[in-house]
């Protein structure tokens, strides 16, 4: 007698992972909202720490918004694999017959949908408070949306490397923040160019190129890192 296994394709597995992660994350609503609150809070600190002078704030707003968004993404990374690691479902993921990089990519996608994208949508509001010219809002949101996808992908490598460590939080920042620098430079650069009445298309194109590169390479690194964290 031949055992016929149900033929579940890769697409089904990815869709199932995405759906499962979305449901889980939406149940723990505070984990979705906390990075956003953190983002708003950090942006509130700067005018208090520097000066409420609108001209000065407008000049440094692109960098501030980008750095704050970057730190907010960074903070949410620790929980990316933590829950699955603790309850053992990460091991199930590793054992599944589907290619691990693809499954991992769908987990990162969910992370971006629930942190990067909301941050990008929220940034114009905070930009308004920092006296950023209204014309730059579209580019600000777009650059953050593109850039934070790269940030999620790169950060997931660090999260996967440190998931097995009991106190990985600070270490995770040390590993990941240097790798964020190219994204920060071009993301903040795009907004700055728009303020100076330039064309932001080259910056956005480079952000897109970085995202492509991250999409190609990081799933393999994340998968390898998860294998090390689980088996080691």
């Amino acid at each position: 007698m031949q055992v016929v296994e149900p033929k579940a394709g890769l697409g089904v597995a990815i869709a199932a992972t995405v759906k499962r992660d979305l449901t889980l994350m939406l149940r723990r609503r505070s984990e979705v909202i906390n990075p956003l609150v953190f983002f708003a809070l950090v942006i509130t600190l700067f005018p208090l720490g520097i000066s409420p002078d609108t001209e000065l704030l407008a000049a440094i707003a692109p960098g501030l918004l980008w750095v704050a968004a970057l730190l907010a993404t960074q903070l949410s990374l620790d929980t990316l694999f933590r829950g699955d690691y603790d309850d053992g479902s990460l091991e199930q993921l590793l054992l599944s017959p589907q290619p691990l990089p693809a499954l991992v990519l769908s987990k990162v996608l969910v992370h971006w949908l629930l942190t990067g994208l909301p941050l990008a949508l929220m940034a114009p509001v905070l930009g308004l408070m920092l006296a950023l010219p209204v014309g730059s809002f579209a580019v600000l949101a777009l650059s953050l949306a593109l850039g934070s996808a790269s940030l999620s992908l790169i950060g997931a490598i660090g999260a996967a490397l440190t998931v097995g460590l009991s106190r990985g939080g600070v270490l995770l920042s040390l590993l990941v923040l240097p790798l964020y620098i190219p994204v920060l430079i071009f993301g903040a650069g795009a907004v700055q160019v728009v303020i100076l009445d330039g064309n932001a298309a080259p910056h956005l194109a480079i952000l897109g190129a970085q995202l492509c590169l991250a999409l190609m390479l990081s799933p393999w690194a994340i998968a390898a890192a998860l294998r090390i964290s689980i088996n080691g």
Binding site: I157, L161, G164, L175, A221, A224, A225, I228, S229, N231, G232
Partner: peptide, 10 residues
């Protein structure tokens, strides 16, 4: 061994 492999990946 895990430390070695993680450091290599990084």
């Amino acid at each position: 061994d895990s430390g070695s492999r993680a450091a290599s990946v990084l």
